[in-house]
Computed example of a mutant assay.
Amino acid sequence: MSMARVLDVLGVQVEVPADGDGSPEAVYGAAALIAIERSTRLLLHAGAVALDGRAVLFPGASGTGKSTTVAACVRRGLGYLSDEMVALDLRTGAVEGWARPVMLTPWAIRTMGLPGSRPDEGDGKAAVPCDALGGAVVAGAVPVAHVVGLRRGGAETTLTPMPAGEVLAQLLAASFNHYRHGAAAWEAAAVVAGQARGWWLDVADVHAAAEAVAGLPYSPA
Rank of each mutant, 00 (worst) to 15 (best):
H45A: 09
A61S: 14
G60I: 00
R76C: 12
I34R: 14
C73N: 03
I34N: 06
A31R: 04
A32W: 02
L33D: 14
G53T: 11
K66I: 10
T64N: 09
E84M: 13
F58M: 14
V74G: 03
P59Y: 08
D52K: 14
L42Q: 05
A46Y: 02
S67P: 13
R41P: 06
V70T: 12
S39C: 12
L81I: 09
P59S: 13
A55L: 08
R75P: 03
I34Y: 10
T40M: 07
C73M: 07
L81Q: 03
L33P: 08
G79C: 03
V70E: 01
L81G: 02
L78Q: 06
L51E: 15
V49A: 06
G79D: 06
T64L: 13
I36A: 15
A50N: 10
A71K: 05
A61K: 15
P59Q: 09
A72G: 07
G53M: 08
V74Y: 00
S62H: 15
L81T: 04
R54K: 14
G63L: 12
R38F: 14
Y80P: 00
V74L: 09
F58Y: 09
L51P: 02
A35L: 12
T40L: 11
D52I: 11
A72F: 04
A71L: 07
R76N: 10
A50L: 08
L42R: 03
C73Q: 01
P59C: 13
Y80G: 00
T40W: 09
V70P: 03
L42T: 03
R41I: 06
G79K: 02
R41S: 10
G60C: 07
E84P: 12
G77Y: 05
V49Y: 02
G79Q: 01
M85T: 14
F58K: 01
L44H: 02
L57F: 11
L51F: 05
C73F: 03
G53P: 07
G65M: 07
R76K: 14
A55F: 07
T68A: 14
H45D: 10
F58G: 04
L78C: 11
M85R: 04
R54L: 12
T69D: 07
S39T: 11
I34V: 15
V49S: 03
G47S: 09
R38M: 12
V56N: 00
G65T: 03
I36N: 12
G79P: 00
Y80M: 04
G65H: 02
R38L: 14
A71R: 02
P59N: 13
D83N: 08
